[in-house]
Amino acid sequence: MNKTQIQELLHHRDPYLMVSEVTKSNENEIESLKTFSGDEFFVKGHFPNAPVVPGAMIQEFCTQSAGVLITKYHSPVKDYNSNKTKGWALGVLNKVQGAKYLSIVKPQGDLKAKVKLIDKMDNLFKFSAEVYQEDELKAKLKFSLVNISDDYLTGE
């Protein structure tokens, strides 16, 4: 799945879109890549002359990847398209149950997320994720996403 297809499923856009490509997916798991350009906004001051990807952005990468899975396979709206469909915000972060960062992630090359759907209860989805860079496990996360009315986002 390329960037255009991902943007049909997610509301995120550059410079905040973290998912560059989806390499594998089904209704229970997704694998995605973040390809770094080296010019990402979130590393310019984190840290000057020694850039490191913030843990919050690693979480966001996994959250967006899980959002693609929810929208593609568990959407309450048939043929959901983020550019056209109104009424729903899909895959909104609800809770981070745990995050363990095992080593530093540099903003270079590809970052790979392997995200698994653990449980689904109505509009609540629980996930686990592992994040790799150059085949080295960098982080393990557990989190929940929820589908909500987009009224919460627009304030209407």
Rank of each mutant, 00 (worst) to 15 (best):
53 V>M: 09
53 V>W: 04
54 P>I: 00
54 P>W: 00
56 A>E: 08
56 A>P: 03
56 A>S: 14
58 I>H: 08
58 I>E: 05
59 Q>E: 10
60 E>G: 03
60 E>S: 03
61 F>S: 02
62 C>H: 02
63 T>E: 06
65 S>T: 09
65 S>I: 00
66 A>G: 12
69 L>M: 14
70 I>C: 03
70 I>R: 01
70 I>Q: 00
71 T>F: 05
71 T>G: 09
71 T>R: 01
72 K>F: 07
72 K>W: 06
73 Y>M: 06
73 Y>D: 06
74 H>G: 13
74 H>P: 15
74 H>F: 11
75 S>P: 10
76 P>A: 01
76 P>M: 00
78 K>N: 08
79 D>A: 05
79 D>G: 01
79 D>F: 00
81 N>I: 05
81 N>C: 03
82 S>T: 10
82 S>L: 09
83 N>W: 05
83 N>I: 00
84 K>W: 02
84 K>M: 03
84 K>Y: 05
86 K>Q: 15
86 K>L: 15
87 G>N: 11
87 G>Y: 08
88 W>F: 14
89 A>R: 03
89 A>F: 05
91 G>Y: 00
92 V>M: 09
92 V>G: 02
92 V>A: 05
92 V>F: 04
95 K>D: 07
95 K>C: 14
96 V>P: 09
97 Q>S: 14
97 Q>E: 14
97 Q>H: 15
99 A>R: 02
101 Y>H: 13
101 Y>L: 12
101 Y>R: 10
101 Y>W: 13
103 S>F: 12
104 I>S: 11
105 V>S: 08
106 K>P: 09
107 P>K: 00
108 Q>F: 07
109 G>R: 11
109 G>D: 10
109 G>E: 09
110 D>V: 11
110 D>C: 08
110 D>T: 14
110 D>Q: 15
110 D>Y: 11
111 L>Y: 15
111 L>M: 15
111 L>T: 15
114 K>V: 12
115 V>F: 10
115 V>L: 06
116 K>C: 13
118 I>S: 00
118 I>D: 00
120 K>P: 04
120 K>W: 02
120 K>V: 09
120 K>T: 07
121 M>S: 13
121 M>Y: 12
121 M>D: 08
122 D>M: 15
122 D>C: 13
123 N>C: 05
125 F>L: 02
126 K>H: 07
126 K>G: 02
127 F>S: 06
128 S>D: 06
129 A>L: 10
129 A>F: 12
130 E>V: 09
130 E>N: 12
131 V>T: 13
133 Q>A: 10
133 Q>R: 11
133 Q>M: 12
133 Q>Y: 14
134 E>D: 15
135 D>L: 06
136 E>T: 13
137 L>I: 07
138 K>N: 14
139 A>F: 03
139 A>T: 12
139 A>C: 12
140 K>L: 07
141 L>R: 09
142 K>V: 11
142 K>E: 15
142 K>L: 11
143 F>N: 14
144 S>H: 01
144 S>D: 05
144 S>F: 00
144 S>Y: 00
145 L>F: 04
146 V>S: 01
146 V>E: 01
146 V>K: 01
146 V>H: 02
147 N>P: 08
148 I>R: 06
148 I>A: 03
149 S>P: 09
149 S>C: 08
149 S>I: 05
151 D>H: 14
152 Y>A: 06
152 Y>Q: 08
153 L>W: 01
153 L>E: 02
153 L>H: 02
155 G>N: 07
155 G>M: 05
